[in-house]
Design a binder for these strands. Structure first.
Length: 424
DNA sequence: GCCCCTTTGAAGCTT
DNA sequence: AAGCTTCAAAGGGGC
């Protein structure tokens, strides 16, 4: 299992994972994704077939032909990571991610020794080139001035194929990263992206004018103190957070967030734990319920807490207080990130609606991804975890244990429900 | 309205 | 250490 080594020893996408991927991919990446998109759900379901039956007609060449289809999505992913990496770079203490050659390429030439696929010593030159080529700055109207002339535009991706278009300039990453508060206006970029622009009044980085940066920044000037996530502005549309800053800042039980200068500018130049008082019931002081705080919707099972959980809490802490704790979601793993990005595409292509079926397809497609493509998601997931750990230093995955009803474990490990042998 | 389904991966827990 | 469990997302379907 890939391990995070905190400050940079993370070897996301461990070899064993990838080996597993490869092995599985050879066997199960046989889905024919060329099935007509007009096929409706009933047809799909009625045509449920054993995967192996169809696999026999599939070939590696077919798979190879199909791979480029993911490029446009990855392009959008890279845009996200571009922002993501910039945000993370600002979190670093000026060392690890210091001084990228160009702000639009925050990870460019940055030695990430933890990543065996992207930039460690074993990284192939081609992979490094790939990084350089695949991380264009936002290619959006109005941001041309920010574009590095050296950077390839998405048009450089020769194997690009048409994909589902995001209507109305919806950021293609909206299905990928959902840190943002959906109430945020998409018109204003986050201040942390252009720290050089200082508010003339306060002297702190101000929110640049929309014309100065990409229109994909959702953080509205009015959303003071409602920064959901340093990357929340990435996802102006869906507004589903992955995790949040607890209401009222970083109060108990996660008070230890180290908000150094870079971090504070990352989160928000206008947001400080000292500036805001805890709004009631997970509401930001703006009155906007923070989308990342999902405690009311999570089924609470206080009796199902692990012993360690109890040990972590004050013995006199009332149960009510525990219940009030904001539910901080787990950071998304690589596959989850991939799913978020690709789900819409699969839905459009297959006209499937049932997530279970879609996820099956996504799972197969995940295995069909190339090593490099997967590595991107592993990298993004690693950054997610890194950022998450910085946002919630005291958070543990076990904190969420028992907050959902225990799911039944299937007692039939070898027999998949045929109803979900879906093909697209 | 809640849970199941389904996927992979990360992390915690148990043996 | 290995294996198991839970939870992340998603949304239709079932009860």
């Amino acid at each position: 299992m890939p391990q995070l080594n905190g400050g940079g020893g993370d070897d996301l996408g461990a070899n064993d994972e990838m080996i597993s991927f490869k092995d599985e991919g050879e066997q199960e990446e046989k889905i024919s994704e060329n099935v007509s998109a007009e096929r409706d759900l009933d047809d799909v379901k009625s045509s449920l077939v054993n995967e192996s039956e169809n696999n026999s007609s599939s070939s590696d060449s077919e798979q190879a032909e199909r791979r480029p289809q993911t490029r446009p999505d990855l392009e959008s992913y890279e845009k996200a990571r571009d922002y993501f990496s910039e945000a993370l770079r600002r979190q670093q203490d000026g060392g690890f991610f210091k001084s990228p050659h160009y702000p639009g390429y925050p990870f460019l030439m940055i030695p990430d020794l933890s990543n065996p696929y992207l930039s460690n010593g074993s990284l192939s030159p081609s992979a490094r080139t790939y990084l350089q080529m695949k991380w264009p700055i936002l290619d959006v109207p109005g941001s041309a001035g920010l574009k590095d002339s050296r950077s390839p535009t998405p048009g450089h991706l020769s194997n690009k194929v048409p994909v589902v278009q995001h209507a109305h300039h919806v950021h293609p990453l909206t299905p990928l990263i959902t840190y943002s508060n959906e109430h945020f206006s998409p018109g204003t970029p986050p201040s942390h992206l252009s720290p050089e622009i200082l508010d003339p009044k306060t002297g702190i980085p101000r929110t640049p004018h929309p014309s100065e940066l990409s229109p994909y920044y959702p953080l509205s000037p009015g959303a003071v103190g409602s920064i959901a996530h340093p990357l929340g502005w990435l996802m102006p549309q869906q507004g589903q957070p992955m995790y949040s800053i607890p209401p009222g800042g970083f109060r108990h039980p996660y008070p230890a967030l180290a908000m150094n200068a870079s971090m504070s500018s990352l989160v928000s130049s206008r947001f400080s734990p000292h500036m805001v008082s805890p709004p009631p019931h997970g509401l930001h002081q703006t009155g906007i319920p923070h989308p990342a705080i999902v405690s009311p919707g999570i089924k609470q099972e206080p009796c199902d807490m692990s012993p360690s959980m109890h040990a972590r809490k004050s013995p006199v802490a009332p149960k009510k207080e525990e219940d009030k704790r904001p539910h901080i979601k787990k950071p998304l793993n690589a596959f989850m990130l991939y799913m978020k990005e690709m789900r819409a595409k699969v839905v459009a292509e297959c006209t499937l609606k049932e997530s279970a079926a879609i996820n099956q397809i996504l799972g197969r497609r995940w295995h069909s991804l190339s090593r490099e493509e997967q590595a991107k998601y592993y990298e993004l997931a690693r950054k997610e975890r890194q950022l998450h750990s910085q946002l919630y230093p005291g958070w543990s995955a076990r904190d969420n244990y028992g907050k959902r009803k225990k799911r039944k474990r299937d007692n039939k490990p070898d027999s998949k429900p045929e109803a979900y042998e879906v093909q697209c």
